[in-house]
Design a protein around this nucleic acid. Sequence first.
DNA 1: GTCCTGATCCTCT
DNA 2: GAGGATCAGGACG
Length: 190
Amino acid sequence: MKPLPREFYQGDTVSVAQNLLGKTLVHLTPAGTVSGIIVETEAYLQGDPACHAARGLTQRNQVMFGPPGHAYIYFIYGMYYCFNVVTRPVGVGEAILIRALQPYTGIALMQSWRGKENLQDLCSGPAKLVIAMGIKKEDNGADLTADPLFITDDQNCTGEIVTTTRIGVGQGAELPLRFYPAGNKYISKR
DNA sequence: GTCCTGATCCTCT
DNA sequence: GAGGATCAGGACG
C-alpha cells in the first residue's frame, strides 16, 4: 500500500480528477485506520468562477497555489469542512473536490464518528466524508504522498465514468466537471 | 418519495 | 456585512 507519487497530481486537473476514481484515501489515526474508495470528484480550474482561486491568491486558498499532492481543506456554511486535492505546479490555483467515498476499511470507526449505520450515508457527500475519515481543519496543507493521510492505487476504477455538472455551485454551474463511475451506489447524488 | 428550513461562522468585499 | 463547493430533519403527498 504505497502512496501515489507527486507526479500523479501534477498534470491536467480534469485528467487527475478522472484518474482519482477508484483510488483509495487512507487515514492512519490514533484510533485506527480508516479508508475509502474515491467514487466522486469535481474539478475546480483556474479561470473558473466557482473556483476559490478565481480571484487570485488569498490567505484561505494559498494551499491551492502550492505544490501538487497536498490537501486543501476549507470551512463552509458555518459547520462543515470540505476536502480537496491540489493539482498542477506551484503558482497554479487548481484543485479537485472529493465529494464521495465508498467505505473500505475501518467502517466501525466511521460509523461511530458519523453516528450513522447505513454504509451509503457514511461518505456520500464532501462534508460527510471529512467527518467519517477523521479529517480536521489542522490537516489543511497536509502532504498526501506520505503518512498519515495519503492516497494509494490499491484499487482501480473499472467500467465507464459518467461526466456531469457540479453540485451546489452558483457561477460555472453549467461546466461538465463532475465525475463518478457509472452505476455507483455511494455517490452524493444522481 | 420530494421540498423547505435551520444550524452556524469563517472569509473576503 | 453578505454569502457560501452542506447536511439533517421535518412537513407533506
